[in-house]
């Protein structure tokens, strides 16, 4: 197994791919979460009927393959709008919206999990809407939402493997390039899989731990 054609340069190549995976994920999760919170609060605040158009649009991101979202966005921006931006930017835009769609569900679910009686109590103590949101809803909703949000962030990292389709060479694409060149699929895939696993597994565990701890009280 260690009798391999893999060179130091190849490792650097893989590491670069891993770096791209991480950067794309961080940008998308950050932007997607901000958007998701805005969308989620909005949807909760205006009610199901007024939020229907937004809900519909966000649902589309959850109902068609990410691969198609990326291809469509790329074609739309590049061929139709004729704007020249990098595949990396397209990837971040699409993944951010994708994240936002799932995140807004999580946020709305978190807010809805805060009992109305608790909020009424807060308002009857004279708190404003903003104070109620900050002091009561935020801490309580976070407990419900955070474990799911960790799952979402990890999901985005795994799904970022698809941005190869807009010419972004992230980890899995780098691996595939090396597989074609070196013809050592198993070793290369194991290295690549281990990378995802080492990041995802502990964080997923931590999310599970939070969920357990917070659902007990």
């Amino acid at each position: 197994m260690f009798d391999t054609a893999l060179t130091a340069a190849d490792f650097v190549f893989l590491a670069k791919g891993a770096g791209v995976t991480i950067i794309v994920t961080l940008i998308s999760v950050l932007a997607g979460t901000i958007l998701g919170i805005l969308f989620g609060v909005f949807r909760y605040q205006v009610g199901a009927i007024w939020a229907a158009p937004l809900t519909f649009v966000l649902d589309i991101f959850r109902s068609i393959p990410l691969l198609i979202q990326l291809v469509l966005a790329n074609a739309f921006i590049g061929t139709i709008l004729q704007i020249r931006i990098s595949g990396f930017t397209v990837a971040c835009i699409v993944l951010s919206m994708y994240t936002a769609a799932f995140c807004s569900e999580i946020v709305r679910g978190g807010i809805e999990a805060v009992p109305a009686t608790t909020r009424r109590a807060a308002r009857s103590l004279g708190m404003t809407w903003g104070q109620d949101m900050r002091e009561i809803v935020l801490p309580l909703a976070t407990r419900v939402a955070l474990p799911s949000w960790i799952g979402l962030a990890l999901g985005v990292m795994k799904d970022s493997a698809l941005v190869y389709v807009v010419q972004v060479t992230e980890l899995l694409k780098s691996t595939q390039i090396l597989i074609t060149r070196l013809q050592e699929p198993l070793l290369l895939l194991l290295i690549c899989g281990a990378f995802y696993f080492v990041i995802s597994f502990p964080l997923a565990r931590f999310g599970g731990y939070l969920e357990k701890r917070w659902s007990n009280d």
Partner: peptide, 9 residues
């Protein structure tokens, strides 16, 4: 904990 695409590969 790994991408679906990885599993398919």
């Amino acid at each position: 904990n790994t991408p679906a695409l990885f599993q398919i590969y």
